[in-house]
């Protein structure tokens, strides 16, 4: 399934891409090193170009993951049901998971690194909602 990675850390992007490919999660993976560019992409994307899954890092300069989610709110209705956003962060701060409640588009928060169990669970979750 079409997947978008947003992470300023290039090693992080490399790792997530390879892990997703290893698990056969996605063939088409687009990655952005800045949330600003990812936002611009989503804002001009046609509905059929929208990714099914977005992995979003939180701790990024200029536009953080939270800023990105706030900027995306006007588009929430178009994205709901099409885009499944997962926060993928290395941070262990407890406050992060509380804050995800503010954003209905966020389906879950995962601590890096991704492992195969988590990847399979996400696939099952996305298939379940999209299949119906």
């Amino acid at each position: 399934m079409d997947t978008l990675l947003i992470d300023d850390d290039s090693i992080g992007v490399f790792l997530t891409e390879r892990l997703l490919k290893r698990e056969g999660f996605a063939e088409n993976i687009i990655s952005y090193h800045s949330a600003t560019e990812a936002l611009a992409f989503l804002q001009r994307a046609r509905p059929e170009e929208l990714p099914r899954v977005i992995f979003l890092d939180l701790n990024m300069p200029v536009m953080s993951g939270w800023d990105f989610l706030e900027a995306l709110q006007p588009q929430q209705d178009q994205l709901a049901g099409r885009c499944h956003i997962y926060i993928l962060t290395s941070s262990l701060a407890h406050t992060d998971s509380d804050r995800t409640q503010e954003f209905p588009l966020v389906e879950g928060l995962i601590h890096k690194p991704l492992d195969s169990g988590q990847i399979q669970a996400i696939r099952a979750q996305v298939m379940a909602t999209s299949g119906s």
Binding site: G12, L15, L19, L92
Partner: peptide, 9 residues
């Protein structure tokens, strides 16, 4: 945690 998580992965 960031480089450590990468190293683990």
């Amino acid at each position: 945690r960031a480089p450590l998580a990468n190293a683990l992965g």
